[in-house]
Amino acid sequence: MGRTLPSATQLILDEFAELKPLYNALRRADQLIFDKFFEAIFQHRAAIDNARNLLPMEMIPFAILLEERKRNNKIFIDLYSQIENLEKRLIALLPPEEGWTDAP
């Protein structure tokens, strides 16, 4: 509706505009990471809007943290599953331990 108040998207864009000088002074590699923060924030516009807070900067870090946590979780899951696979393959390569073989 935004009859008298700016929309969540507009508030976020305003915050981005304020952060522009900071962004400009970062190295390219850091700017690319910052871009990912922006993407994370944009993915949670509805939630930021629903928070009914005129100062989105209070909500924005949560959106970034959320996406970071999701990314970490995914990395952990991938990592554990790869370790598990490696372990299985390693066990298959090892000679059978004494006592595990069938009795003569």
């Binding site: 509706m1 935004g2 008298t4 108040l5 993915q43 509805a46 809007d49 009914r52 005129l54």
Partner: peptide
């Protein structure tokens, strides 16, 4: 109250 009410429909990303 204005902040709570001056909104449109809920739209997710």
């Amino acid at each position: 109250e204005l902040v709570a009410s001056d909104r449109g429909g809920l739209v997710f990303e």
